[in-house]
Design a protein around this nucleic acid. Structure first.
Lengths: 228, 228
DNA sequence: TAGCCTATTGGCCGATCGGCCAACTGTCTG
DNA sequence: CAGACAGTTGGCCGATCGGCCAATAGGCTA
């Protein structure tokens, strides 16, 4: 009765399972953590935190489910870990972009184009953002870095307003809000838009056309009117 | 052995379960369908299609799970039914708003304010929209009504452009895109924004402030420049 | 080399998922 | 009144979920 169904002690017969490819697989906890985070990021971004199972992540990462619990504790903590890793890169990049941006006339044009290009090249950020929004309900972490980013931008805008290069009757916070919303909303609805325009324009071409008009509208709205 | 565990024939002893409140509960399939759709809409919008179980819907609707299958076939069909019912109302309202809007100078201002007010009063639409976006992956139904709405708006804008009231170097489709994006993105990120501004401004007041600047930027961008 | 620490494994658990089925019952039609 | 049909019910199914546990095994240190 030692080998009943309920017996959960690993068999010492040690099945000839993975005797085949033996090249890899030394102990490497950091690489394991990275593999889990990578697999988690891809699946979480595609199917959302609810729609992704630990089994799927484990399979894609090439590890066992138990190992995920060992390294991250729970599914929720893994999801937060994935979010943290992604947003850290995101915020660092944004911060660098703001600090490197000119503080004069072309500030806003450079910024909105740069943000558009950033989202264009990294669709993952768009979906990440969408998931945190819709998943919120309880509200995700306030993200101190986000506030820091806004304050950095607000400061820049205030300078440009003082120099008369941006309408000073507009709240800098709202200017940033619109600056972010226009590119973000475009890529959020990218697939729908593609289905909406029945023309033969390719995706990249459509992006460029929207970018041009979006910049025109945004700049026309925030720049001081010539006369009046 | 008639009453073994496996026995699934309803007991004819007919437990004294619901003998209590007998006032309600005649057969009313339409009311049942509505109750299921109502419960489904609320739960789907709050937790998303993946995060909502048929058991929850059945419980909230006061019916059994089997009844949902009887009326809608499957969870997926129920979700599509809920979407259809909501978007039908949404599109009808939008269509009426467009058709009733003036076709002259204040067209865009009226439209963007009206859309802002609509989303402000119906947060459900915002979350609905977010879920369909993020859940897509396969792309949700192309929604012919959406295309009809866009074409209606494009026509109006073309008229205004011909009358010289809107910059005619902008593609009407993109004007509508920005018109939609600005209010939608605001309410999508409403909770985050609230957490971001540490001031003592109440939500309604903040909405009004954003509305004002948003309209200023949008109109400033789409209206012809005075000189140049 | 001996021993400890931890990365790693397979198996199992209770809960819950969406879906199905046989049976009861209200209502409508002939 | 009788029979058919559709609305409604409770119970059950296999699959899968997140999580847990005992046991193995690699690698570091004393």
């Amino acid at each position: 009765m030692a080998i009943l169904i309920g017996d959960q002690r690993p068999r010492d017969e040690s099945g000839a399972a993975d005797a085949a490819e033996e090249t890899r697989r030394r102990r490497d906890p950091e690489a394991t953590r990275k593999a889990i985070l990578d697999a988690g990021e891809e699946l979480f971004v595609r199917n959302g935190p609810i729609g992704t199972s630990l089994s799927q992540i484990a399979k894609k990462a090439g590890v066992t489910k138990s190992l995920i619990h060992h390294h991250f504790g729970s599914k929720e903590e893994l999801w937060q870990g994935v979010q943290r890793r992604h947003f850290r890169k995101y915020f660092e990049l944004q911060k660098r972009m703001i600090q490197e941006s000119s503080s004069t006339a072309e500030l806003l044009e450079e910024s909105i184009v740069a943000y558009f290009r950033f989202l264009q090249q990294d669709p993952k950020s768009v979906r990440f953002f969408s998931w945190t929004l819709v998943e919120g309900e309880d509200g995700h972490c306030p993200m101190d870095e986000e506030k820091e980013l806004f304050e950095l931008g607000i400061e820049k805008i205030r300078e440009a307003q003082a120099a008369g290069e941006i309408r000073d009757d507009l709240e800098p916070f709202f200017i940033i809000k619109t600056l972010i919303s226009l590119p973000m909303a475009w890529f959020q609805t990218h697939e729908d838009t593609r289905a909406l325009v029945d023309s033969e324009i390719d995706a990249a071409g459509l992006d460029e056309m929207y970018l041009r008009d979006m910049v025109e509208i945004f700049l026309g709205g925030v720049r001081p009117r010539p006369t009046s």
